[in-house]
Design a protein around this nucleic acid. Structure first.
Length: 567
RNA sequence: UGCCCGAUCGUCUAAGGGUAGGACAGCAGAUUUUGGUUCUGUUUGUGGAGGUUCGAAUCCUUCUCGGGCAACCA
């Protein structure tokens, strides 16, 4: 028996949990809950799969059950072990552990026997029609189909032919095994669906043992059944397949799993179909499956997303049967919320041409070590050393010659605090012949040192900075949404017409020296940081000792940008 | 034009005959050495029409709208 489900008074259940609790209450399957995550190993996992993974593993966890990882590998021509490995890595990275690692191909012998059983019951026949002829026989959703001329072959002939298909006597496409149901059924899937086809192809696990392979519709339901899956969760497009699965299960008299369909995840400003993602990769619109702009698990990982933030996201979006389009802002909220608590604050001036600030009254050659807190969110706040000197870089955005109202950064005659250091006052703007600002000459207020400020001066703005002689140069990759419209797939025309040309911006930055040896991966918090006032960043795997590369995971919320836009 | 799903704030998601609630987003304010965080307040919703009922988001009818189904793909 499983543990009793948690008291339902407080928590509201989603429709799947309600079904599961009803089933448990009714003593169905002895109260057992066993789910499965069934990817086809022909592509990389994306955030939509994460929803399914969290659902399946989460449900089993919640009700003391188990979850199998099962690869639906019934089509050897599109599948590969490369995908098997990436899928396993992604599921593990998300934080889940499967009960059994299984493959639909484990059941090929069993499935073959099921097929013979169907023939023997007079419920399946070998059809010599071409695929075009079969398509024509199917009719259309509004017109009934017609029977194949091979539909009434004898059981003996069907058995003989099917065995010879298995033995490799016929070329690809010469024959198929079809279920004998009803060519006039209003459900297209009941119009004598194909059960087996001939493919003389090498399978990634069974090698050359088979030259006939079952169709998904003749493998999936039975695979669930064989594994005694109690609740088989899948997406809405399989609703119309369910009666067929139930029909096979019934005719074969095997364990009936209960299929429950939910709406797949759609995210704004991206695409989620494997076909479209593959196209983006193959046509070079992105740099591979793990491009940080991709909604793939590997892309999100490289972008700096954490497993916990993705799980939290999947939790927040809920699950239902209506079509949905989730605001990508929710995903960003989830990662900000976690990174705000876990990352150290550091300073990076992200600017191709940063502004040099010279403190005219600060002694030449002097260096002070400022103690700056790492993360104010920590219960026990720690500090790090940041060198300060006569010349510092700031971002050009943090200075304006003619500031608008409510601008409280630096401007001529104005004052700001350099984070963790001194308040400075802008005395002079130096320009080159072209009129471009090359340098700011400022004075610092010696009594305003952070932590021992006796100046009595109150400034509105605090900006970040990096000491020029101590600055470490780095490459920073700034990412924006991959598409310019919320629903590129729903738009007229090709979805690729809406690719955002500015989704990747590579810029130079100068970072504080504490980051000089920042590393991808194993370092504290996976090499993730908050660049103060800019956003959350992580060290990219391209980074080396000599050349730092950071990815921007997400910006900080920027109410000033919003204000400035209002005008 | 057949069959199958579905329709609750801008976006998700609760409420399963008895006060339409939460999250994100938005807006306003407070705090802040990050225009961040945090805190407080707040705008916004049951697709239409009938019916059952003391009472309907919820049950019934019907309309409208959205999505899916015609691969030897999964």
């Amino acid at each position: 028996m499983t543990e009793a489900p948690k008291e339902s008074s407080e928590r509201s259940l989603n429709f799947i949990e309600q079904i599961v609790e009803e089933d448990i209450a009714n003593g169905k399957n002895e109260g057992r809950v066993h789910t499965r995550f069934p990817p086809e190993p022909n592509g990389y996992l994306h955030i939509g799969h994460a929803k399914s993974i969290c659902l399946n593993f989460g449900l089993a966890d919640e009700y003391g059950g188990k979850t199998n990882l099962r690869f639906d590998d019934t089509n050897p021509t599109t599948e590969d072990t490369e995908y098997v490995e990436s899928i396993k890595a992604d599921v593990r990275w998300l934080g889940f552990d499967w009960e059994n690692e299984l493959y639909a191909s484990d059941y090929f012998d069993q499935l073959y026997d099921f097929a013979e059983t169907m023939i023997q019951k007079g419920l399946a026949y070998v059809d010599d029609s071409t695929s075009e002829e079969i398509a024509a026989q199917k009719g259309t959703p509004t017109e009934p189909g017609t029977n194949s001329p091979y539909r009434d072959r004898s059981i003996e002939e069907n058995l003989d032919l099917f065995r010879r298909m298995k033995a490799g006597e016929f070329p690809d496409g010469a024959k198929v095994l079809r279920a004998k149901i009803d060519m006039t059924s209003p459900n297209m899937h009941f119009r004598d669906p194909i059960m087996y086809r001939i493919k003389h192809a090498h399978h990634h696990r069974t090698g050359d043992k088979w030259c006939i392979y079952p169709m998904y519709d003749f493998a999936h339901g039975q695979s669930d059944s064989i594994e005694h899956i109690t609740h088989s969760l899948c997406t809405l497009e399989f609703v119309v397949h369910r009666p067929l699965y139930d029909w096979f299960i019934d005719k074969l008299a095997i364990f009936p799993s209960r299929q429950i369909e939910f709406a797949r995840l759609n995210l704004t400003y991206t695409v989620m179909s494997k076909r479209k993602l593959l196209q983006l990769v193959n046509e070079g619109h992105v740099n591979g499956w793990d491009d940080p702009r991709m909604p793939t698990i590997s892309g999100l990982r490289r972008r700096g997303y954490t497993p916990a933030s993705i799980r939290d996201f999947c939790d927040r979006i809920g699950v239902a049967r209506r079509e949905n389009m989730i605001d990508v802002g929710l995903l960003e909220f989830c990662i900000r919320e976690e990174l705000n608590k876990t990352t150290d604050r550091v300073m990076a001036v992200i600017d191709e041409k940063p502004l040099k600030v010279v403190l005219t009254n600060y002694p030449e050659g002097q260096t002070e070590i400022m103690k700056i807190e790492n993360n104010p969110e920590d219960e026990y706040v720690t500090e790090r050393d940041v060198p300060f000197s006569r010349e510092v870089y700031i971002e050009r955005d943090d200075f304006m010659e003619n500031p608008p109202k409510k601008y409280f950064r630096l401007f001529p005659g104005g004052m700001v605090r350099l984070k963790g250091a001194y308040i400075i006052k802008c005395d002079e703007v130096v320009k080159d012949d072209a009129g471009e600002i090359t340098e700011l000459r400022c004075t610092y207020i010696p009594e305003s040192r952070s932590g021992s400020d006796t100046s009595g001066i109150n400034v509105k703005g605090t900006i970040h900075w990096v000491s020029v002689p101590h600055a470490v140069e780095a490459e920073v990759r700034l990412y924006d949404r991959l598409f310019t419209v919320e629903d590129p797939s729903g738009e007229e025309g090709d979805f690729k017409d809406f690719i955002n040309p500015d989704s990747l911006q590579v810029v130079r930055a100068f970072v504080e020296p504490s980051l000089a040896h920042a590393q991808h991966g194993n370092a504290l918090h996976g090499g993730r940081f908050q660049f103060m006032r800019k956003g959350y960043f992580c060290v990219d795997p391209d980074s080396t000792e000599g050349k730092l590369v950071f990815n921007r995971t997400v910006t900080l919320k920027d109410t000033w940008a919003k204000e400035a836009k209002k005008g």
